[in-house]
Each structure stands twice: as C-alpha cells, then as structure tokens.
Simulated assay, not measured.
Amino acid sequence: MNDRSALRWDLLMRYRLIEIVAQWEGRLTTNHLTNSFGIGRQQASKDIQSYLTKIAPGNLVYDKSLKGYTPSAKFVPKLTGGNADEYLHILSRNKDVVHTFTGLDLAFARTEILQLPIRPVDPKVIRSLVQAAREHRRVELGYISMTSGVEERILVPHTLVCTPQRWHVRAYCEKHREFRDFVLSRFRGNPEILDESVHDVEKDIDWNTEVTIVLAPDSRLSEVQQDILAHDFGMIDRKLHVKTRAPLVTYMLKAFNLDIDKLDADPLAQQIIILNRAEITRYLFKK
C-alpha cells in the first residue's frame, strides 16, 4: 500500500520521516519520531512496524549494534522522492522550530541557513485573499506600487505563489482588466470582501499555459566544466528541461541566477544558458 490519500496526514508525515531519516542518515530510532511528533516510544515503535508491514516490507532491518533500523540492500522510497533535498529541508526546518520545540533527533544538527529578511504581511490580508480565492469573490484593498503609490484595488485572487525572494498572489485586477501578480507585503488597509466574480483561475490563460525552459552548460566552458554542471543539475545529454507556468518564467530564471539581458557575461559567472531563449521571451517580465 502506498496510496497517500488513504493515510491520515499525521501518520503520513511520520512514515515520510521514517523513510527520509533511514535513507539519508542510515540509522532510524524511535527517538526520531518521539521528539518530532510528541508521541510515546510505544507508538513510535508501532509506527515503524506499521510502515514495514503496510507500506514498505523489507525496506528496513534492525541493527542491534546500532540500536536502530538501517536501510536494507533493497530499500526503495515509497512515500518520498528519494531526493537529498527532502533531508536537507528537514535540517533547515529543524533550525526554524528549535526555539519553540525540542527539535528532531538528527545526527547532523550543525546547519547554517541563509535567511532573507522577512517581509511583513498583515494576517487579515492573507485571510481575505484566501477567503476570496476559496469563494471566487472580489476583494477590495489598498495596494502600494512603485509608480502609483497607495491606491484602492479590486482583485479576484486565485493562487498564492512562493518564489525564492517573496510571496505574491495571482489575481485578476479590475483596474488593468487582466491577471497580474501582487506582492503580499505591499497590501495596505482593511480588506473588504465583495460579491462573486466570473474571473476565476480557468480564465487566467497565461497561468494555465505550461512553458518549458531548456537550460544547458555555457558552451564557452571546457568539456570537463560542462560535464560538472550537467551532473550538478541532473541534466540529460547536457540539457535540463524545466517546466513551469507562463507567469512564473521570470521567477524561475531568477532562481537559476539567470539574467536574460546578460547572457554574454563571463561564462564562469552564470555557467548555464537558455537554449530556447526566443521561445520564452514573450513570457518574461509580464506581471
């Protein structure tokens, strides 16, 4: 059984932690579960046995010398992707919550997380946007822009979007009569929920358009350097196909540290290039 929809959320999270810790640390104990989820040792032991019985028989073996479970030779992730990022994200989250909770019983706890300054967002703004998106309604609220200052906007939001630099909301703007991105930290005042709107997510053509960005190592680099980059990014035949929504193309390129206007810069600076630049140019900087 590996149908996530059939599992309770809390149990799924415990099963996922079992897989991640076992795969990336090589030793799983009941302490990982008791410290992370506030459950007793007996329940933690029951969860591990349940995982082995219902989810992944044979994935783990108990090592008496280590006093814990280790991944077997035939270990295969069932509820996780088997990616290092899953473990590394747990390390970062562990540091985030350590001031409130005891923290996870992870073997490698020395991590340093580069954190950007937190942009202040009013809770009532989030609540109104979430309600309006859920109920397909219009919402009136103040928004400050770099060109117009603070002015009242009537929006029809449909999706909250997280980029490496900030959170924003994708919404239909009645002033501009089109779907745009609005930075959450720039909303002002007290939002007012209005009536329903026909401008839902299905009407956002750009949002529903999938774009593929094709990346490759800069050809000006040496063969060895290109092979290193291809391995770093998991490229196949020195190409990486990145799929995203049309309005998110610019954000995706920024995440790769790519500047569409500086492709002739020092090859060691950007290291990778866009192969299908002409195809994606129409989607850049459209907000």
Rank of each mutant, 00 (worst) to 15 (best):
D3C: 07
L7H: 07
R8S: 03
W9H: 15
D10R: 15
D10Y: 13
L11N: 11
L12S: 09
Y15V: 10
R16W: 03
R16D: 07
V21G: 01
Q23Y: 05
W24K: 01
E25N: 09
R27V: 11
T29R: 06
T30R: 01
N35L: 07
S36N: 05
S36D: 00
G38W: 08
I39E: 06
R41K: 15
Q43E: 06
S45D: 00
I48E: 03
S50P: 04
I55G: 15
S65Q: 05
K67Q: 08
K67G: 13
T70P: 05
S72C: 07
A73R: 14
K74T: 15
V76E: 03
P77T: 13
G81V: 10
G81P: 12
N83A: 15
A84W: 14
L88T: 10
H89R: 14
S92G: 00
R93G: 02
R93W: 12
N94S: 10
T100I: 14
F101L: 05
T102W: 02
T102Q: 05
T102D: 02
G103C: 00
L104V: 11
A109Q: 13
R110Q: 13
T111E: 12
T111W: 04
L114C: 00
P117V: 10
I118Y: 07
P120C: 04
V121K: 13
I126N: 13
R127W: 05
R127F: 05
V130H: 12
V130K: 06
V130S: 06
V130N: 07
A132D: 14
A133I: 02
R137I: 03
V139F: 00
G142K: 08
T147A: 09
S148N: 06
G149T: 07
E151V: 11
E152L: 13
V156Y: 05
V161W: 07
T163Q: 03
T163W: 11
V169A: 15
Y172V: 02
Y172W: 11
E174N: 11
R177Q: 15
S185W: 09
F187G: 05
R188D: 05
E192Y: 02
L194K: 09
D195Y: 04
V198S: 14
V198I: 11
V198D: 12
E202G: 00
E202H: 08
D206V: 03
N208M: 02
E210V: 02
L215F: 15
L215W: 11
L215E: 01
D218Y: 00
R220I: 07
L221S: 06
L221V: 03
L221Y: 03
S222V: 08
S222T: 13
Q225W: 00
Q226S: 08
D227H: 10
A230F: 12
F233Q: 01
I236Q: 06
K239N: 09
V242R: 13
T244D: 05
T244F: 01
A246Q: 07
P247N: 06
V249H: 03
T250P: 04
M252Q: 03
K254E: 00
K254S: 15
F256S: 04
N257H: 15
N257D: 10
I260M: 05
K262P: 06
D264T: 14
D266A: 11
D266W: 00
P267Y: 04
I272G: 01
L275C: 06
A278G: 01
Y283V: 04
L284R: 11
K286D: 04
